[in-house]
Design a protein around this nucleic acid. Structure first.
Lengths: 155, 155
DNA sequence: GGACCGCTATACATAATGCCCAGTGATTAC
DNA sequence: GTAATCACTGGGCATTATGTATAGCGGTCC
């Protein structure tokens, strides 16, 4: 799937002002409303736009501590470990990675003390051999996509 | 900031059907429109909802490879390294973490071969001493927030 | 008891949406 | 070269949502 300049500009606009409507977007971009509508439909059915879910800040929910945990898994226990981690609300995402048959997960907690509880819960499972945790201090580049979109759009 | 059941249900609803309007949300939740509007306003001014930006899938843009790189930084070079990484579109996020004065960043690339180019660009900077990269194979738990929201909402 | 707060319920003007259509220019197919 | 296809334009129209305001009601805090 490739996107062109108009797609890129539309995504940028939506990222900057998400509550904008199709009509207003068409005005800003200087194209017809139907065009914006068609592009949006296409971007969504192509899977480029997964959705417009609310971007919730865990810190504002009372979970200001973020950490990344690298997990070492017993052979053959991958499925069980995934199910276990999926059941922990503080696990915000989980990846399996190359390396030592390992997993990487993003955790949040209410405090550094609470992080200990979360880690205990995460690693308190039979298939997990070892865990090493890195606590996030700063987040100089929050999750972003626009620079990549611009590059993909050729600009 | 604490959220109650109604806030939680509203966030869940928005996460599941993001294009829903205030009116429709009020119908689903069985409350008055003004209530939903007030809750939404409050959640946004509280920072619980950062926005409704489009959720763009890098894979659909032509970047199906994700990796996490752990970087070791020269003392005193942090600021320069951040600026450098912020300028690389394939760097989707960057965190500074405890450990070895390190950083953790999420990268995407067009292919495994392309990942080499991205990594070269990332680490081709004076302040970076060493990098170790883990390529993501699977993503059993994609970035999510609803389980945490439910827990924060008390149920 | 009085003040305050959040929710309900309703109203109304304005604006956006979903959907339709005909026309145009550019590209592709034959 | 001609026909067909495709994306975009520009317009219209009925329906629906939004922003904003109103008054009333039931709690809670002192």
């Amino acid at each position: 799937m490739a996107i062109d300049h108009l797609d890129g500009a539309l995504l940028e606009l939506l990222a900057r002002e998400p509550r904008i409507g199709v009509l207003e977007a068409s005005r800003r971009l200087g194209v017809a409303r139907g065009t914006v509508q068609a592009r949006l439909d296409r971007l969504q059915s192509n899977g480029v736009i997964r959705g417009f879910g609310p971007d919730v800040d865990p810190a504002a929910l009372g979970y200001p501590v973020t950490a990344f945990a690298t997990l070492e898994i017993k052979q053959g226990q991958g499925g069980d470990v995934r199910a276990h981690l999926a059941g922990v609300p503080e696990v915000l995402e989980l990846h399996t990675t190359t390396g030592h048959g390992d997993m990487l997960c993003r955790l949040v907690a209410r405090s550094n003390a609470d992080l200990q509880r979360v880690i205990d819960r995460v690693v308190g499972f039979d298939g997990i051999v070892r865990a090493s945790t890195a606590i996030v201090m700063e987040n100089p580049v929050p999750l972003r996509i626009i620079p990549l979109v611009q590059q993909a759009a050729g600009g």
